[in-house]
């Protein structure tokens, strides 16, 4: 969005000198902007090795997709994408990244052969999908219907079981059309996930000592004393129990 406004501002100046810009369709310009951001960042997710960077690119990609949703008039879905996907899910994911971000795992390299094979497969799949996407004529050519003011109300009504966007003839009785049942199911589902997440994060008293060899395999334990000795010329021992010390250990 910020990019959008800056782009508008700069093209404004350009537009005065370059007449063809007058023909620009702003909808298309912003679509291209967001589409390029979404696709470029998705590609970067694939190509990046560092898992934190992958998460960052994913944020940009999903954020740009939210912009696409806004452009398509699905404002509620766009805002939801920002709120739940970018703001919630990805923060969760980043938490996961950081919890497991041991130096050896931050970037796990994939072999070149695997990459080439995956690229080949992906290319084939992409071709297939593109052919399908571009082969239907009415899809390529938008109609003359201008954008109407979008509203989240029909969607909200549909989620509680009333379809207001369709003529009454098509919709059955109130409560049995729309998405009331899926809505309820998904609510319960979310509750279950919430409980599961709380279960996962619960604290328990330590009963058995931590398996030492596993810790060791991750990172050799460094003692406080060892660590303290680094960068110090004369290591001063920690003050022991000094009931009646006359002369300080620091001297």
């Amino acid at each position: 969005m910020i990019g959008g406004s800056v782009a508008v501002a700069s093209t404004c100046c350009l537009g005065a000198v370059v007449p063809p810009l007058a023909m620009l369709d702003w909808h298309a310009v912003f679509f291209m902007l967001f589409a390029a951001a979404a696709c470029g960042c998705a590609l970067a997710v694939v190509l990046a090795d560092n898992v934190v960077r992958m998460a960052f690119y994913l944020v940009l990609s999903l954020g740009a997709t939210a912009g696409l949703f806004f452009l398509a008039g699905a404002e509620f879905v766009g805002a939801m994408q920002l709120m739940i996907y970018v703001g919630g899910t990805l923060v969760l994911l980043v938490f996961g990244v950081m919890l497991t971000a041991q130096a050896p795992f931050v970037s796990i390299k994939t072999s070149a052969a695997e990459k080439a094979f995956a690229g080949l497969l992906g290319g084939a799949l992409l071709t297939l999908l593109l052919v399908a996407a571009l082969s239907v004529e009415p899809w390529r050519r938008p109609g003359s219907v201008g954008p109407t003011e979008p509203s989240a109300t029909p969607l909200g009504m549909a989620l509680v079981g009333v379809r207001v966007d369709e003529p009454p003839a098509h919709s059955p009785a109130v409560g049995r059309s729309g998405y009331l049942l899926p809505f309820e199911i998904i609510s319960v589902h979310l509750l279950v996930v919430l409980v599961a997440a709380a279960y996962l994060a619960r604290a328990k008293r330590r009963k058995t000592p931590r398996p030492v060899e596993m810790v060791a395999s991750v990172e050799p334990p460094v003692s406080v004393a060892e660590h303290a000795a680094i960068g110090r010329e004369a290591a001063v021992g920690a003050p022991a129990r000094s009931g009646s010390v006359l002369v300080g250990g620091g001297s």
């Binding site: 702003w26 201008g146 954008p147 109407t148």
Partner: peptide, 10 residues
């Protein structure tokens, strides 16, 4: 409805 498409963003 009569407005152009530009109002989508700003």
């Amino acid at each position: 409805a009569a407005t152009g498409s530009g109002d989508l963003v700003l």
